[in-house]
């Protein structure tokens, strides 16, 4: 009984620490899939416009 209480407490603490980390460091995680290298909003806006332009050009060609 004690054993499972201890393990449960450990699981809780580790999970809580892992989940709360972004608030402690204020950064996004390294393996975050959504992150761009720098200055995301501007870059995405550019990329999106570029893609739209490319699709438009392709439509015209076909």
């Amino acid at each position: 009984m004690m054993g499972s209480v201890v393990i449960t407490a450990m699981m809780l603490l580790i999970a809580a620490a892992y989940i709360a980390r972004p608030f402690m460091t204020g950064q996004r995680g390294e393996n975050d899939p959504g992150a761009d290298k720098d200055g995301q909003p501007l870059r995405e806006e550019l990329r999106r416009r570029l893609e739209e332009e490319i699709s438009r050009v392709r439509e015209e060609q076909s």
Partner: peptide, 18 residues
Amino acid sequence: DDRWVESARRAVQSASLL
């Protein structure tokens, strides 16, 4: 808010592992 989303991401990972 990116930090919250990151936290949620980690929560999902934790759940899967548990």
